[in-house]
Amino acid sequence: MSPYVFTLLIFNLGLGTTMTFASSHWLLAWMGLEINTLAIIPLMTRQHHPRAVEATTKYFLTQATAAALILFASTSNAWLTGEWAINQMSHPLATSTIMLALALKLGLAPVHFWMPEVIQGLDLTTGLVLSTWQKLAPFALLLQVSSTVNPLILTLIGLLSTLIGGWGGLNQTQLRKILAYSSIAHLGWMVLIIQFSPPLATLSLLIYIIMTTSAFLTFKLTSSTTMNALATSWTKSPMMTSLATLILLSLAGLPPLTGFMPKWLILQELVKQDLPMLAFFAAMTALLSLYFYLRLCYTVALTSSPNTITMLTPWRLNPTQTSPLNPLTTMLTLALLPLTPAILALVIY
């Protein structure tokens, strides 16, 4: 791909999301979403490869449908109530439809099936963009409409997402599918809390983005996309693979690592809203996700797999260039928990 076209597409990717952020009118928000989708489609098919094309087609169909549904629901709302502003939605049918469309766009539970397959077909960098940057625009819309959506729908979608995200990943050996399911589970936690405390949902999205970035970048560094490749990746970068254990446990949300912070705050907020049983079930579904993260940990650094070669060949090749982002996000992934009060003060109060 020519660098000019590439730059143009990247800028359009940013433009689409920014337009959605900045808009208060549904049509503009929809235009932003469309620009965003249209810009990432050539990026996804950069390698003309059957799997990339298939992933792009599936992505295109779901995103176009979701965008059309969003516009349809907002038009209906306008016909019924005469209001085009995003945060003034009032008709329950329209808000429910928009919630489902946003769930389709984000890859939330009842309509999540495209997500693992699409990420599986892409390379790790595009997969990273898909599971971080592409979530931002729909999430911004979700933040604005969440107060008008039926709370039951939000709770059901959230709980189902954490459950399915944990359940679906159990049987996978492909890293990108596992990361897709982890994305579903994390977004489920955010949807669970978005009706009670939108800033908290934003904070957990931010932390999820940091954590998943370091996971994707680490896998990219060792260029591993399956668990088998991960098992032999320690020869390529021993330091990063041993840290990958901690990154994965942080994604799982174990206490001294950053990933515990959003879980803790979300559970606290749920209990504060007098929903201890919901908090309990949400916490239990996190155990399902923990199982596959733990299995990844076992392969990545806790066992040394039998090698077909007797010598450590990858030592002799030139090491792959570490992205400058990787050490930063890894540090943030591992050590942000003690800063929780400061972050809370910045984000919430």
Binding site: T45, H49, V53, E54, T57, A64
Partner: peptide, 17 residues
């Protein structure tokens, strides 16, 4: 634009699959 992107994907799918 969307339809043209879809048609492009149709061509690409036809060529790969």
């Amino acid at each position: 634009c969307e339809a043209s992107a879809g048609l492009a994907l149709l061509v690409a799918t036809a060529r790969t699959h």
